[in-house]
Amino acid sequence: MNIFDIMGPIMVGPSSSHTAGAARMGRVARHLLGSQPVKAVIQLHGSFADTGKGHGTDRAIVAGLLDLAPDHPDIPRSFQLAQEAGMEVSIHPVDLPGAHPNTALIHLTDAQGHTLSVSASSLGGGRIRVNAIDEMEASFSGELPTLIIRNQDRPGIVSQVSQVLSEHQANIATMQLYRDRRGGLAVMVIECDNHLSPALVDELSHLDGVEKCTYLNMEGC
């Protein structure tokens, strides 16, 4: 954990885990979707469900979906802003056995009808962890430029992806592999040290066997 995760962030109160972390969670989900959602179904678990209303967790997640930063003064009135922006929002409690106490499931739909489900937890001090995307396990913070690649589980794909990254001089910080079953659907989560170019991301998404390549860069957010 970097010292600026301890000291900071500068944020709108009242809670770093329940307000700032929640805002960041919404913002990461929005960036993973790639555009502003027209519909958001938010499920809150544990302490998020029990105390989220008083902490403004619900308003903070919606503010994040509107791409507002955790120190944006408009966070308290995000429901109104969402309505004005034509975003339909519903919020429900959920019980997720074994999940981190500050966990939310965010189900999004964009204007083209694309959907995305993100499970994320707020770890304290405004930091978050994405636990799953579209029900496939993952584990990343969104603090580094991150690639999420969905591909068929077959030999050679990891090598092709790392070759493209190496050709573009992109250094891999961490790499995780998940799959639903042998030969099924797999997910690669790659955190890089530097920003990746659109050309690189495009090249990766056209690799044989790659179904979808999402690039998340929250730098400056």
């Binding site: 500068i10 109160g13 304290g124």
Partner: peptide
């Protein structure tokens, strides 16, 4: 100020700002 949704520095958290 924090309880009133003012802008603070989490150090290390907002509740302890």
């Amino acid at each position: 100020h924090n309880a009133c949704m003012g802008r603070i520095v989490a150090a290390p958290t907002a509740g302890a700002s």
